[in-house]
Amino acid sequence: MSETKPAHPSRSRRISEALRHPPPGAKAVAIATTSTIVLLVVVGFVVINSPGWERVQSSFFDFDVFGERFEQLVYAFRINIQIFLISQAMILVCGLLLAVMRSLESPVFFPFRAAATIYIDVFRGVPSILVIFLLGFGVPALRIPGTTNDPFFWAVVALTLIWSAYVAEVYRAGIESVHPSQNAAARSLGLSATQSMRYVVLPQAVRRVIPPLLNDSIGLLKDTALVSFIGAVEIFRRAQIVQAATFNFTVYVIVAIIFLLLTIPMARFVDWLVARDRRRQWAGAR
């Protein structure tokens, strides 16, 4: 009866809607699993039956090399972690300073605003590897007394310069997302522009941009591999040394896996934060 003459048109519409987007139940899981397995089997079949597979397998997926070299590469990875942690701390501070400089509205601060804008344009626009090269090889070549040619030092400086520009833009998006009425309320109470920024705008802005900041953290962590080019013996440089000695590329696969062991949990953490914020916003909406 209800099929030919629906008692309630909106109800039948709701039912057809529900059929189009079924709830994630057992059936949905089964379908997802099956389609994944089919895809993997097809891709695996194509790869394994390719003419070059045997040679690729022995030079990229050699389990003996994997067992022998894994620990050594993890040990070299600590250099990447050190570079990452030190630059990350400096990036979060420098990025914030740049963002605030760029957000200053008074005409008096025009030079600061312009300087911050130019800085961000330049360091976002130049390939990271060039900045690392120019600093790592160029500055020590000047032989200014007191300067170091330690690649670790220049790696930290280069990554800080590059990623501060990206992070500044993330902060700035956060600052601009805080409604002007918040600033108006703060100023109307007699707070100065600086106090309003410090106590009212920035706390709200920073909270909102934590997920995108973590995204940039992942990018920074990956970029630490670039500093191998100026001679810091971190994980990628170590892998190159081993590869040159053994003529086997398995080490690069190991390096990829080690990076993924850190970056995938970071990515999942970002997703979790975003989902949590969304839930909170829905709960807070009236």
Binding site: S181, Q182, A184, A185, R187, S188, L189, L191, S192, Q204
Partner: peptide, 20 residues
């Protein structure tokens, strides 16, 4: 301006409380 605004209170239509 900051000095003057201390002496003049304003309440807005949308409350504008600080949510954090």
């Amino acid at each position: 301006l900051d000095h003057v605004r201390r002496r003049i209170g304003i309440v807005f239509q949308a409350y504008n409380l600080f949510p954090h």
